[in-house]
C-alpha cells in the first residue's frame, strides 16, 4: 500500500506542540481573513506570515511543502491570470488606469491587483492547510476534538479517510488500467470515450467502495466503535498554553480586522447578484 500523502510529519516544533484545536483556530483565522480581505498589502502580509510559520515553526523542510506546492501552484497561477479578465470592479486593489492592453480585454491596475490578491489568497490558504496537515497527528485531532465535546465517531472520520485513501486510489488506478486494457469506449470520439470511462469508473468504484466500506464498518463494530458514547485515550492529551494564547490572540485580531474592514460594497464578489 502506498504511503499516505498529506499526512503527519514527525518533528518537534512549536506547531507540533500546539493542540490541534489551537491550530484549527489559527488556520481558520488565516483562511477567513484571506478570503474576505481586499487589501493587497494584507494579502502579501498573510502570505509572508504563513510562509515564515511553515519555514521556521513547523520543523518540516520546505522541500516537503514544495512537493505539494508544485502541484497546486499551476492552478493558482491560472486563477491569478484568468480571473482579472472577469473582474467586475467590486474591490479596490488598484487604480482604474490601463496597465496592459490585450486582444481580449484591456486590463487595469485594479484587475491585475485583483489577480494578485486571488493568487496570494490561495497561497496563504494552501500553506496554512499544509502546516496543519504536517504538524497534526490524526489521533491527536480525534482526541482533542472529542474532549471538546465532539462525537468521537465523527472526528475519527479523517483517520479512516487517511487509512482508506491509498486503497481507494489503488482501486481507481486498477479500474483505469482495465479500461485501457479492454478499450472501453472503443469506436467513439475522445470526448464520448472519456464520458463512458468516467461513468464506468464512478459505478465500479461505488460498487467496490461500498463493499469495502461494509467490511470496514463490520470491523469497526466488532471492535466496539460506538459501543459507548465516549471513549478513553491511551495517551495523555496535549496541552500547550503558549500555543493556545497565540491562536486565540490571532483569532481575536482577525475578527477585529474583518469587523473594521467589513463593507459589503467593496467585497470582491457582488453579493447583490
Amino acid at each position: 500500500m502506498a504511503q499516505t500523502e498529506l499526512s503527519y510529519r514527525e518533528a518537534d516544533s512549536l506547531f507540533h506542540r500546539m493542540t490541534p484545536f489551537s491550530k484549527l483556530l489559527f488556520v481558520l483565522s488565516i483562511s477567513t481573513v484571506a478570503i474576505f480581505n481586499n487589501n493587497l498589502g494584507v494579502a502579501i502580509g498573510l502570505f509572508v506570515f504563513s510562509f515564515l510559520i511553515a519555514a521556521f515553526f513547523t520543523g518540516v523542510s520546505l522541500k516537503e511543502y514544495w512537493r505539494f506546492g508544485k502541484v497546486i501552484l499551476p492552478f493558482i497561477l491560472i486563477l491569478a491570470v484568468v480571473f482579472p479578465f472577469f473582474y467586475g470592479g467590486q474591490t479596490t486593489v488598484g487604480t482604474e488606469e490601463i496597465a496592459i492592453r490585450t486582444p481580449i480585454k484591456d486590463l487595469r491596475w485594479a484587475d491585475l491587483g485583483f489577480g494578485a490578491l486571488l493568487g496570494l489568497r490561495f497561497l496563504a490558504l494552501g500553506i496554512s492547510g499544509l502546516v496543519f496537515a504536517f504538524t497534526t497527528h490524526p489521533t491527536d485531532l480525534v482526541q482533542n476534538l472529542s474532549k471538546r465535546g465532539w462525537d468521537y465517531r465523527l472526528v475519527h472520520a479523517p483517520v479512516l479517510g487517511l487509512v482508506l485513501f491509498p486503497v481507494f486510489l489503488e482501486l481507481g488506478r486498477d479500474i483505469s488500467i482495465t479500461q485501457r486494457i479492454r478499450d472501453l469506449g472503443q469506436d467513439t470520439n475522445p470526448i464520448r470515450r472519456k464520458w463512458i470511462r468516467l461513468k464506468h469508473l464512478a459505478f465500479a468504484m461505488l460498487v467496490l467502495g461500498l463493499r469495502n466500506g461494509q467490511t470496514q464498518a463490520m470491523a469497526l463494530d466488532i471492535r466496539g466503535y460506538g459501543a459507548h458514547k465516549t471513549r478513553t485515550f491511551m495517551r495523555p492529551a496535549k496541552k500547550h498554553r503558549g500555543g493556545e494564547i497565540f491562536a486565540w490572540a490571532f483569532f481575536v485580531l482577525s475578527i477585529a480586522y474583518l469587523a473594521w474592514k467589513w463593507n459589503p460594497a467593496t467585497m470582491q464578489w457582488n453579493m447583490d447578484l
Binding site: 471492535r223 466496539g224 466503535y225 460506538g226 459501543a227 459507548h228 465516549t230 471513549r231 478513553t232 485515550f233 491511551m234 495517551r235 495523555p236
Partner: peptide
C-alpha cells in the same frame, strides 16, 4: 488499543 479505548479501558491497562 483501538477496541480497548472504545470499551473505556483506563490508559494504564490499555
Amino acid at each position: 488499543g483501538f477496541a480497548l479505548e472504545n470499551y473505556l479501558f483506563p490508559p494504564n491497562e490499555i
